[in-house]
Design a protein around this nucleic acid. Structure first.
Lengths: 209, 209
DNA sequence: CGAGAATTGGACCTTGTGGTCCAGTATCGC
DNA sequence: GCGATACTGGACCACAAGGTCCAATTCTCG
């Protein structure tokens, strides 16, 4: 771990820190890491420069990593409880709907986690590595669900949960990228449908008509 | 159009301009727009500051847009001739292989076009819009191929080329995003396979066994 | 060859940015 | 209550980045 966060913080301090992270997360989501200055978050949170460095001694990098974790948990929350129990085809449909509802209900700014990885790679490797870890965790839920479905006989024995999970996750991320580019939820919807179709093609029973 | 490029340039000038774009494209690909300063491209191209603004009066924005177009054509070139004649299943397989070969042969930095859209949205709307246009053009080739295949009877009459094309393209972009995050070509490969599987599910004849 | 335009070099300016510092105030634990 | 510690405000700094300007040089073309 790179974070120190030396001073143990009081209830008030924790609240301030959380307020900074939440507000900064929105700013970064809307304007990107490079497009968001510390002065912007200062103005957006009614705090002072010293507080930023008090709660995030590592400076912008540490703040960005805190934002990444915050957004990661936020996104996970939106997919619960489906994400953790992808054991039947109905679960996958529920997951799909939850994802569409979540991203459809907010301005189309792409995935709060996925957009970070492309921007941080090459400028902040340590933060990028953490974000990559989050992506892998997310993908892991899909992978595990597919593995369980294969073991329970819903998928063909020769189906590869790793590759299938990767493919579904790629559809999500790509769909969100296009959603951001086109300012429409349609790409995500189409990508998810196709991904689930591909999954059904690996089912033991013939694909739905 | 926002570009002026007032002075008509000589052969030497055109060469210099092209050299700047090519070198800057590599820098931006590796370090992102925000991570690449004009001083960096000046150093990387053995030019001077005045030349940058001589050939790109619009400043960094204009340079970035030139880079986007350059990369777009580069990527299209790598997919030729398959991209323009996606009329049979063999064509799609060929396209898939060309894409994998292209992105597999270089450092895994993601899609030169796709990464731009997430970074430019929110900081440079005009450049972002142009990149979005490039993405749509790219996607259009897939759409058109699918439409032709439907009309020629290879796809079911009720197949939706728009949605399918969007889904395949999302797989490409998402696969490249994960390729960048994991520094491995595997995600793109898995995503493409799944996308083609989904396409086959829309074929008139039953999907390949 | 010679005028005018294109090309090049690099000093310079201005602004924005991440980051530091210190002094003052609220809060906690004893 | 009181000392220590966390919290807050904001002035300040160093520097990097985008952009301007002008003078020198090269090239084109009649």
């Amino acid at each position: 771990m790179t974070t120190a966060t030396a001073p143990r913080l009081t209830a008030k301090g924790a609240a301030t820190r959380a307020r900074i992270v939440a507000a900064a997360a929105d700013l970064v989501l809307a304007r990107g890491v490079g497009g968001t200055s510390l002065d912007d978050v200062r103005a957006g949170t009614l705090t002072s420069k010293s507080q930023l460095f008090h709660y995030f001694p590592g400076g912008k990098t540490e703040l960005v990593m805190a934002i990444a974790t915050y957004q990661f948990e936020r996104v996970l929350q939106a997919q619960r409880p489906y994400l953790e129990t992808l054991d039947t085809w109905a679960d996958w449909d529920g997951w799909r709907d939850a994802l569409l509802a979540h991203y459809g209900s907010q301005p189309h700014w792409g995935c709060p986690v996925g957009t970070l990885v492309s921007e941080l790679t090459g400028t902040d490797p340590v933060a990028a590595a953490q974000v990559a870890g989050h992506l892998d965790s997310w993908c892991g839920y899909l992978r595990d669900g597919l593995r369980r479905m294969r073991d329970s006989g819903l998928l063909r024995p020769d189906a590869d949960p790793d590759r299938l999970g990767l493919a579904v996750f790629a559809s999500v991320q790509g769909g969100l990228l296009l959603t951001q580019a086109t300012r429409s939820i349609e790409p995500l919807s189409a990508a998810l449908d196709a991904a689930l179709t591909a999954l059904h093609a690996a089912a033991l029973t013939p694909p739905r008509s």
